[in-house]
Nucleic acid binder design. Structure first.
Length: 266
DNA sequence: ACCCAGGGTAACT
DNA sequence: AGTTACCATGGG
């Protein structure tokens, strides 16, 4: 497998920030290269000055999976240079290159169910055990287990994950997605309000997890997840609401602000 | 021992 | 309609 694809790097692109700013939980960095799995494919990827290198990657996988995954057709420079707000400008100047990844909707839903009242290191651990235990594929690069697979399991089966009270939520989500009572195709095609209601039919899915799923899984960039950090941001910096320049891409602004504020407190 | 973490639910006023 | 205890688990 020496298939390798090199492309010029977009203007606003930081691989490490994209993969480790709290939107995806399965990417690991080893010696300048990031390793991960998405849409059933393992990838090693590296950013060098002015270019991106995708290792072990066919032309077909690049076009169908990784190009959309990294949102390479979107002009983020245009978006972030339109910010006319002091805090957003500060966030962008420190952490330029964050993008909203187009993740698999089921993986996003399941991941953010696990995220509730939890911290990022432990979220990563639970997801790793979930994939290692129930995912298909090679050891060390297992796929994220499908909703169908998890729908056939019981809460007790998930005990090795040590996901606590969230196990029953994972099972309920898997069952509803599998049987179609939560309809991903309709969420995709309908306005965001439909997705908000549809996703909250799942036990353990409230407003915040729904927004995360819509943003990271369905790429609805107007979705605006409010967690404890964004709550602080809104109280401290935007008591009157987000500035106009974020209209339609509130979720992208949210990701910059979330990471910026979180890094400040470390 | 206490508090917090990319929250949500159910049982209260 | 708006608060509040509780939910498992692990790290600080």
């Amino acid at each position: 497998m020496d298939n390798r694809i090199e492309i010029p790097c977009p203007a606003v692109f930081d691989l490490g920030l994209c993969l480790d700013c709290g939107q995806a939980f399965r990417w690991v960095k080893k010696e300048e290269r990031w390793h991960g799995v998405a849409f059933g494919k393992a990838l090693t990827v590296e950013q060098q000055e002015g270019k991106l290198i995708f290792y072990n990657c066919t032309e077909d996988d690049f076009e169908k999976i990784w190009k959309p995954y990294f949102d390479l057709d979107c002009d983020y420079e245009k978006i972030v240079t339109s910010y006319d707000d002091e805090y957003l400008k500060a966030a962008v100047s420190e952490y330029s290159g964050i993008r909203i990844l187009r993740q698999d909707p089921w993986e996003a839903l399941c991941s953010f169910i696990i995220s509730q009242n939890n911290n990022i290191p432990r979220i990563k651990g639970i997801i790793e055990r979930l994939c290692d235990t129930f995912g298909e594929g090679d050891e060390g690069s297992k796929c994220f287990p499908s909703a169908e697979r998890l729908a056939a399991l019981s809460v007790e089966d998930l005990a090795p994950l040590r996901s606590g009270f969230r196990a029953k939520y994972i099972i309920d989500a898997a069952q509803k997605v599998t049987e179609g009572s939560v309809d991903f195709a309709k969420i995709e095609s309908m306005p965001i309000e439909f997705g908000r209601e549809e996703l909250q039919k799942i036990k353990g899915v409230g407003a915040k997890v729904a927004e995360c799923t819509l943003l990271y899984g369905f790429h609805k960039t107007e979705a605006f997840p409010v967690d404890v950090w964004v709550k602080r941001i809104m109280a401290e910096m935007y008591p009157a609401g987000l500035p106009e320049c974020t209209k339609g891409t509130e979720g992208i602004a949210q990701q910059y602000l979330f990471h910026w504020r979180r890094m400040r407190d470390k």
